[in-house]
Design a protein around this nucleic acid. Sequence first.
DNA 1: GAAAAATCATGATAAAAGTCATATATTGTA
DNA 2: TACAATATATGACTTTTATCATGATTTTTC
Lengths: 225, 225
Amino acid sequence: MSKCEQCIVKQFNSLKSLTKDELVRISGCKTSKVIKKGEVIFEEGDVVNGVFCIRDGVCKLSKLSANGKDQIVKLVVKGDLLGQRSLVTEETANLSAVALNDMEVCFIPKSEIISDLQKNTNFTLDVLKDMANDLRQADDIIVNMAQKSVRQRLAETLVYLYESFGTNPDKTLSVILSREDYANIVGTAVESAIRVLSQFKKQGLISTSGKKIKIEDLEGLKRVE
Amino acid sequence: MSKCEQCIVKQFNSLKSLTKDELVRISGCKTSKVIKKGEVIFEEGDVVNGVFCIRDGVCKLSKLSANGKDQIVKLVVKGDLLGQRSLVTEETANLSAVALNDMEVCFIPKSEIISDLQKNTNFTLDVLKDMANDLRQADDIIVNMAQKSVRQRLAETLVYLYESFGTNPDKTLSVILSREDYANIVGTAVESAIRVLSQFKKQGLISTSGKKIKIEDLEGLKRVE
DNA sequence: GAAAAATCATGATAAAAGTCATATATTGTA
DNA sequence: TACAATATATGACTTTTATCATGATTTTTC
């Protein structure tokens, strides 16, 4: 099993602020998991009891609404920590986490890492900064949801995916989502999401082949009203 | 000027975890302010450089959208700390804070409190818990915005105001908002907010007199679809 | 206290988005 | 490979929400 001390992934998250000794201890108690596309990592209401360090892959954080639709709140990717809130709260999970492609994650039990949170201020501050950043992003999403059209939100989602996660060699978006996922990010009906994507195709803003989407006119997408 | 050590308000926020010595020091450098209804505490893009401890009153945290509408993201009330993110980030404010009624606040400069954040883990953890809670709330709002109708969102807002901030002796909601504020919380046009409130009146769910709103049928409001 | 400004209210109409139906394409799998 | 299951696509129609117009009220200001 690989060791946390040597893992490059940790550089992208708060774990980078742990001391060597702390990392060695964490490494000893972590468990590595391979999670297949579509598999549930945890669900709303679950007791999470630890954090997941994402070594590879992408997952969605979503919440089931009363109308039976899943709303995707955030995408969590390679390098991120998943379940930070569980370290701080006694509450059960507010969101579900489901793998969007095959993933490799390490699970670190809360019991092991909680002492670091109490002793290593740099680590705590790092987690705090991360959370502050998540909060800003969430606030921005609220504003978008409330004030922008489905067209705009979908265009922005495509731009976000392009700029944050990049493309494959064939220039298609490297994160592959179903139309339903797009609908659940944007907060609309699946048919509406499909319709808008078709419009974008007709306008030459994107091209598609199955689930693969290629951004053809980034600036155009950014100008969508 | 009153002293933080003796201030009851601090018990409701993270400042309760500061030691007596720390509080005395903070107390020495804080400035008290009276802010009148409608006055701006800080605006999007401002460098905030400290936190405000709300001794009395309510303010709205909002963000201007591209379409010129303000989206209210959160109400901050007596006992809350305002501007916690500024302690952690170097960024400028992401939201504006505007007083909804006359307020009394204390401003604590970042330079003074930042050392406590580095030394007193209980305080840091408290801020972290607060932020985790804000994040959960924000996620829930995203889901509501995305998946619920204006009617539902407005009904829930009324219930929230009732349950969180209570009523005046005459049973009207103690937080008084304009129809525009309601529209900006719910994320809709002012006319739509007014229309829905009128419907609620006709259905006997609420009664109004000017800006004062009385909840007549709480359970009915909770059942609004 | 009266004039001006802002807010609240409601109707008419338009635009946006949702729903239902149905057809086609893609994917998984026996 | 073929068949079933799932996902994508599009049309027709409905519902929701936004916009514009116009008064009535309330609040502010002089």
